[in-house]
Structures are given as structure tokens and as C-alpha cells.
Design a protein around this nucleic acid. Structure first.
Length: 115
DNA sequence: GCATTGACGAAGG
DNA sequence: CCCTTCGCCAATG
């Protein structure tokens, strides 16, 4: 895909944040959007994730879930089982397509990195 | 160029 | 408390 310079920058920012998420932790689309200053446009973060396939270094998109901790993007992986498998690999428990103890595992860039 | 969609989120009924 | 609607902004038809 060909993006405008501005859009590319936004996408790269999203990728950068996602790669900063520690192993065994998760974050949300909204938190990333807020950190980037785009606030309510959490959808754009999801859009960026959609473009993260094949990006190097690999973007741990499986650590990004919606605000309920639900694996809303699992269908976009190579296989719907992939996201869940990767999370379990990092000791993150998944129950009924939802991250267990999501609040404890939640990694907010606005807090961890600094506002 | 207008209409629809989308890995979201908050608010309203 | 569940379901619907609206706002967000870019990409796609």
C-alpha cells in the first residue's frame, strides 16, 4: 500500500508503541491512540495493525486488544488461533476470546512511558 | 467524488 | 443491563 507521508508517520508511531509493550503485557487501541494524541480515533490504530502484516521487525499485534480485553483482531491473523496461541506463550491467559486479568496486564503507554 | 466500511470507544435509549 | 447510535479518520468501492 502507498501511504501519504503523514499517514506513514502515524502508522510507524503505532508500530513503535506496540513494539514497546513488554512481554506478558497487553495494551489497547484507545490507549495507543491517546498516546499519539489522536484520542478518539482508535479505529486508525486498528487500521495500522491491519497494515502491520509482514512489517519488520515483527509487530506483536497480539498484545493489542480492545478496551474490554477482547481479542477483537484475532480473525486478522494468519489463523484465528494464532493470536490466542501467542498470548498463551507469554503466560497471558485467554478465556472465551478475552484476556484474563486484563486490568492487571494492561500496559498503558501514557503511564509507563510518560505523558 | 460520494457512500460504505473498519482489529474502537463512549454515550444514549 | 443489553442494544443501538454517533464520532473518529483513512481506505476502498
Amino acid at each position: 500500500m502507498q501511504y501519504t507521508p503523514k499517514t506513514t508517520d502515524f502508522f510507524q508511531n503505532v508500530f513503535a508503541i506496540v513494539r514497546l509493550v513488554p512481554k506478558g503485557r497487553v495494551t489497547t487501541y484507545g490507549a495507543i491512540a491517546k498516546y499519539l494524541g489522536t484520542g478518539g480515533s482508535a479505529r486508525m490504530v486498528g487500521w495500522a495493525m491491519n497494515a502491520s502484516h509482514g512489517v519488520k521487525p515483527k509487530v506483536p499485534a497480539h498484545r493489542v486488544v480492545n478496551r474490554n480485553g477482547m481479542l477483537s483482531g484475532k480473525a486478522h491473523f494468519e489463523t484465528p488461533h494464532q493470536m490466542e496461541a501467542l498470548l498463551l506463550k507469554e503466560k497471558i491467559k485467554v478465556k472465551n476470546e478475552v484476556v484474563v486479568d486484563f486490568e492487571k496486564l494492561f500496559w498503558d503507554p501514557n503511564v509507563e512511558i510518560g505523558i
